[in-house]
Amino acid sequence: MTAIPSMAATNKTAYTLSEATYPIEVNGSVYTGQGLPVLTYKGNTYVPLRAMGDMLGASVAWNEKLGKVVISSGAAIAPCNNAFCDVLVTGSGGRYTVTGKGRVFEGVMQYAVEDGHDYLLEGHQQLEEGAPAWAPFSLEITIPSEQLPANGTLTLELFENSAKDGSRINELSIPLETF
C-alpha cells in the first residue's frame, strides 16, 4: 500500500509512505491498527500518536491556543511496601543513586544488587531512626563495567532482617537498568 503523497505547507515536498509489514508491540501488547495504519518512510516507522499514547498510558491532546500537540505521561508511582517508600533511582552505566524512606527494625536496612544470576553487591545502611518512624536514605551504588550484564537487568533488592529469625522480610525489588 502506498499512501497518497502529501504536500508539507512550508516547503511543498512530496513524501511517499508505505504501510509497515511488521507488527508494533508496546509493553507486551500488539498494536492492531484501530483503523489507522503504521507507516514507513526511509526506514523510519511512523505510528498514530494518540494510539501509542493510549498504549503507553500517556495523554495526547491538541492545545488549540498554543497550536501544538501536548503529550503527558502520569508521574510514575514510586515503589512502596511496609518498610520502604518513595524509592527513586537515577543514574546509568553502573553508577546509581537511590533515595527514599525506610522504616526498619533498629534503623538498619539491607540491600543487594543482582544481575539475574549472581549478587554483585551486598551491604547495609544505618538510618537516622528505626521503626515505626520513617527515615530518609540515600545509596550510592557503583558496579564496575566488567560486571555489568551484556544482556539482562540489574535489580536492587531492599530488605530488612527479621528480629525473630534473621530472615529477609519486607523485600522490595527495584530495577536499576536493563542492558
Score class of each variant (00 low, 15 high):
2 T>L: 13
3 A>D: 07
4 I>Y: 11
4 I>W: 07
6 S>R: 05
7 M>Y: 11
13 T>K: 15
15 Y>D: 08
17 L>R: 05
17 L>W: 12
18 S>W: 06
18 S>T: 15
19 E>W: 02
19 E>L: 12
23 P>W: 01
23 P>D: 05
24 I>R: 09
25 E>R: 10
25 E>V: 15
31 Y>C: 08
31 Y>W: 05
34 Q>H: 14
35 G>A: 07
38 V>G: 09
40 T>W: 08
42 K>A: 15
43 G>T: 10
46 Y>S: 07
46 Y>L: 15
48 P>V: 04
49 L>A: 12
51 A>V: 07
54 D>Y: 08
54 D>F: 11
57 G>N: 10
62 W>G: 12
62 W>I: 12
62 W>R: 03
64 E>A: 15
66 L>T: 15
68 K>N: 14
71 I>G: 02
72 S>V: 10
72 S>K: 15
76 A>K: 15
80 C>G: 01
86 D>I: 01
87 V>R: 11
92 S>P: 02
92 S>D: 13
94 G>H: 04
98 V>L: 03
100 G>I: 01
102 G>D: 05
103 R>F: 00
105 F>H: 12
105 F>G: 01
107 G>F: 01
108 V>E: 03
109 M>C: 11
111 Y>T: 13
112 A>T: 12
113 V>L: 08
113 V>D: 07
115 D>Y: 08
116 G>D: 07
117 H>C: 06
120 L>H: 08
122 E>M: 14
125 Q>W: 01
125 Q>E: 14
127 L>S: 10
128 E>N: 09
135 A>P: 00
138 S>F: 00
139 L>K: 00
141 I>D: 00
145 S>R: 09
146 E>S: 09
146 E>I: 04
151 N>L: 09
152 G>H: 09
156 L>M: 12
160 E>K: 06
160 E>R: 06
164 K>N: 06
165 D>W: 04
166 G>I: 02
167 S>C: 07
169 I>R: 09
170 N>P: 03
172 L>E: 04
173 S>Q: 11
174 I>D: 03
178 T>V: 11
